[in-house]
């Protein structure tokens, strides 16, 4: 069994909360503990904010978020893809180093990827210079099962 959603947003910071609400709504269909929902929201917020802050120099560019909720062998999995078509990440190892940021003057903490790695079970970064970046996030949900008596 699976359920898919796809959201396309303009690269505006005010759209990050729209994505958070949509993802929260999707995973709330499962009985997921609140702290886990908050952690997933935080990870997605980091990924989408990255695209908006770093991928493009122009306005009105696209960021595409797709999420899949699937049940395999009675376990629930959440897969989220966050894709932009911007400049790409030159050095992924450097970009994912805790505390590294290209915008310290804007008080960026440089902790986005560290938070994604901490709060999700798996993260894959696929970036090509000049054509964009695709982030895949995966989490096995701690769904509370209703027992059949």
């Amino acid at each position: 069994m699976e359920n898919n959603i796809k959201i396309e947003i303009d690269n505006k910071l005010c759209n990050v909360s729209v994505v958070r609400v949509a993802i929260t709504s999707l995973i709330s269909q499962k009985d997921v503990p609140l702290d886990e929902i908050t952690e997933i929201k935080t990870a997605i917020s980091e990924a989408v904010t990255n695209c908006i802050e770093h991928a493009y120099e122009e306005e009105n560019q696209k960021v595409v978020i797709s999420a899949k909720l699937s049940t395999i062998d009675d376990m629930d999995f959440l897969l989220i893809n966050i894709e932009d078509f911007g400049i790409g990440i030159e050095d992924v190892d450097l970009a994912t180093t805790p505390g590294y940021t290209t915008k310290p003057e804007l008080e960026h903490a440089g902790m986005g990827f560290t938070i994604m790695e901490t709060f999700m079970d798996e993260i894959t970064i696929d970036s090509k210079m000049g054509s964009g970046t695709k982030i895949k996030l995966m989490k096995k949900l701690r769904t509370r099962k209703v027992s059949n008596i």
Binding site: R20, T42, S45, E46, T49, L106, H108, A109, G112
Partner: peptide, 8 residues
């Protein structure tokens, strides 16, 4: 809710 921008 707070993400890494709050940390900054």
């Amino acid at each position: 809710f707070m993400d890494s921008s709050g940390l900054g």
